[in-house]
Structure formats: structure tokens, C-alpha cells
């Protein structure tokens, strides 16, 4: 959906552009703009749901600016977030679209789709707590309502839920199933069944890695997923050998035809600091975006645009190359 983002004087992103694809894995040191990109998308979602800035307001936007370009059929629409030089948050949204009813219609449809941008940074502590049963509309940014979401999914999409549960038990064979039990009047608690003795254990007794993996699967098997999914620290808490399952689950969102899901592709923007996860994208360098920070300025670079990477990969793993520093995208020392 979002084709490119161009930052001007936004935090460390003084003049940085990134073209986005169906799947995007962002790597780079802290403070190099990965989270800023996700925050910009969330800001776009928020502001696109509000009235656009008036012309006189837009003229005041002489400070940081973020331009968004979109894939067809919205390639004629350009959206800009801006603010005045003394403001810290881009609060002004201006839209450039073709004139007339058709152009208005395009923008109307696009802004509806932009409302489905979601960002996640899973929190195992939140996931381990019972959730409000009514909080089941979609996975919360920290996945704290995972019990409610999965309980509702089992009721509304039993086939989808059964496939996800089977996947969970295949990846983590120590478990034989999931269940959801009411707690008090309005809460629901997640339980997992141990394969060995059939005992049920509550979410607060599950490992962090188990909860994170379950959250990723919940996203990947969502029968009605958001249009754009941003996932920070996609490798979080997951054993290196299980990162392939994380990748597969995220690919399931971006490439639904692979799984014959029949729904529209979800644009995925994931970040990681794991060389092991990066290695899993060696065959798809066009999906990797390296964020670099030199001094106080950060830039983005798609790895497939570097002429030297394929030659370098003949001698070392991509993750090791990144770690070594020769690709860039490492902390300053």
C-alpha cells in the first residue's frame, strides 16, 4: 500500500527516503530511524482519520516533513505530514490528489485503508495477564489482549483458529492445545495444554518465548488482518532455530497466495537485531532495508541496491557480514 516514505529534518532522518515493498525487514543500530519510520506510519494513520490541514495551516509547516507515496491505485495521491519549525510532532496533514470527485474518492478510499495500519511490540508480561473478554476486536500493540482475541477467533473463525493451534503445537510439540477460561465476570485467561501429561497451564506460567511465538502466529493467521503490520523486534524471545517459523508467519501475511488465503496482501515492516533472522532473508535481499547512522544523520538503504553484497555472501553469512560492520548498519563505537 505505502510505496515510499521521504523524511526531511525528522529527528535523525535529515534527508532520508525508503521505498517499501510487500515485506520489509529493517536492520540497523538503535537511533537509526527504524522506529521513527513506524512512528511516522502510525502518525499517518492517526492524522488521516482527521480533517486535513487548511491551506493557511499548511503554509506554517516549515519544519520537519514526511512525504508518503502510495502504490496503485493510489499512486496519484501524495500525503505530507509536517509541522512548524518549533514543533516536535508532525501534526499537519496535507493531501495532494487529482482534482474532482474521482480524486476525492481516491483519497477517501485511501484514508480508510490507512486506518488499518497497526504496530506491535509484544510484551510477555501483558500477554500473561487475563484480558478483558470484550477487548477482542484486534490484537493490541503489546498483544495484551491475546486471550480475548483468540477466544473470539475460535468462535468466529474456527477453521482459522484450528490451523493456528495446530501450527503452534507443531512448532512447540510440548503443547497439545490452547484453551480460554473465564475469570470473574469480564475477563478471560489463556491456557496451554501440556502434551506429556495433559495438564493445563496458565499464560503466566508459559515462557516468554512461547508467548512471543504465539503472538506472531496470532498475527500470521489473522483471518481479517490489518492492511499494514509493523512489528518491532520480530525475533524477540524466540530461539534462533524457531526464527524460520517467525519468518514463515510474517510471509503468510505478505504473500497470502502462497497459503491460498485469498485475501489481500498485508504490507509488513519488521525490525530486528538478530543476524540469525537476517540470514533467513539471504535469498530476498530486496526485502532488507539497512538503516545507517553516521554522526547525527540517518539514512535508509535497500540491500539489493548494493552491488557488493552477492559477492560478499559467497564467503560469509549475511548476518555475519552485517555483524562485521562491512555492510554498515552497526552502532558507532
Amino acid at each position: 500500500m505505502i510505496a515510499a516514505v521521504h523524511f526531511r529534518n525528522f529527528k535523525a532522518l535529515r534527508s532520508a527516503a525508503v521505498r517499501l515493498r510487500a515485506f520489509n525487514l529493517l536492520i540497523g543500530p538503535s537511533g537509526s530511524g527504524k522506529t521513527s519510520l513506524i512512528q511516522a506510519l502510525l502518525r499517518l494513520r492517526t492524522l488521516s482519520g482527521l480533517p486535513v490541514a487548511r491551506a493557511d495551516e499548511a503554509k506554517r509547516a516549515d519544519g520537519p516533513q514526511i512525504d508518503f507515496h502510495f502504490d496503485p491505485p493510489f499512486d496519484d495521491v501524495r500525503v505530507t505530514l509536517g509541522c512548524s519549525a518549533h514543533e516536535l510532532v508532525c501534526n499537519l496533514l496535507t493531501v495532494d490528489h487529482p482534482p474532482g470527485i474521482a480524486g476525492e474518492g481516491q483519497w477517501g478510499e485511501l484514508r480508510t485503508r490507512l486506518q488499518s495500519i497497526r504496530a506491535f511490540l509484544f510484551d510477555h508480561n501483558a500477554m500473561a495477564m487475563p484480558a478483558k473478554a470484550k477487548d477482542d476486536a484486534g490484537l493490541a500493540s503489546n498483544a495484551g489482549n491475546i486471550a480475548a482475541v483468540l477466544q473470539a477467533r475460535r468462535a468466529r473463525f474456527p477453521g482459522s483458529m484450528a490451523r493456528m493451534e495446530a501450527e503452534f503445537c507443531r512448532i512447540m510439540p510440548e503443547f497439545a492445545g490452547l484453551d480460554f477460561r473465564p475469570l470473574g465476570e469480564d475477563r478471560v485467561e489463556l491456557f496451554a495444554k501440556l502434551a506429556e501429561d495433559g495438564d493445563w497451564i496458565s499464560a503466566d506460567n508459559l515462557s516468554q518465548g512461547t508467548l512471543y511465538l504465539l503472538a506472531v502466529l496470532t498475527l500470521g493467521h489473522d483471518p481479517d488482518p490489518p492492511g499494514v503490520v509493523c512489528l518491532e523486534e520480530a525475533d524477540r524471545g524466540v530461539h534462533p532455530r524457531l526464527l524460520r517459523e517467525v519468518r514463515d508467519s510474517l510471509y503468510r501475511l505478505s504473500y497470502p497466495l502462497v497459503e491460498k488465503g485469498g485475501r489481500a496482501p498485508v504490507q509488513v515492516i519488521a525490525t530486528t537485531h538478530s543476524p540469525y533472522l537476517l540470514d533467513l532473508f539471504s535469498d530476498h535481499l530486496d526485502e532488507i532495508v539497512l538503516s545507517n547512522k553516521q554522526g547525527n544523520a540517518a539514512t535508509f538503504e535497500r540491500l539489493s541496491e548494493r552491488s557488493d553484497v552477492l559477492e560478499l555472501m559467497k564467503e560469509a553469512h549475511l548476518g555475519d557480514l552485517w555483524f562485521s560492520g562491512i555492510l554498515g548498519g552497526v552502532p558507532c563505537e
Partner: peptide, 18 residues
């Protein structure tokens, strides 16, 4: 190419592990 071989076997360049 390796990618073509993957296509011929899996019908996709991005097969799930399963």
C-alpha cells in the same frame, strides 16, 4: 537459478517450513 528450483519444487520462492 536456485530461486527457479524452489519454484519448481514448492510453487513459491517462499515456502513455509512445513
Amino acid at each position: 537459478t536456485r530461486a527457479e528450483l524452489k519454484w519448481r519444487v514448492y510453487g513459491t520462492e517462499r515456502p513455509t517450513l512445513m
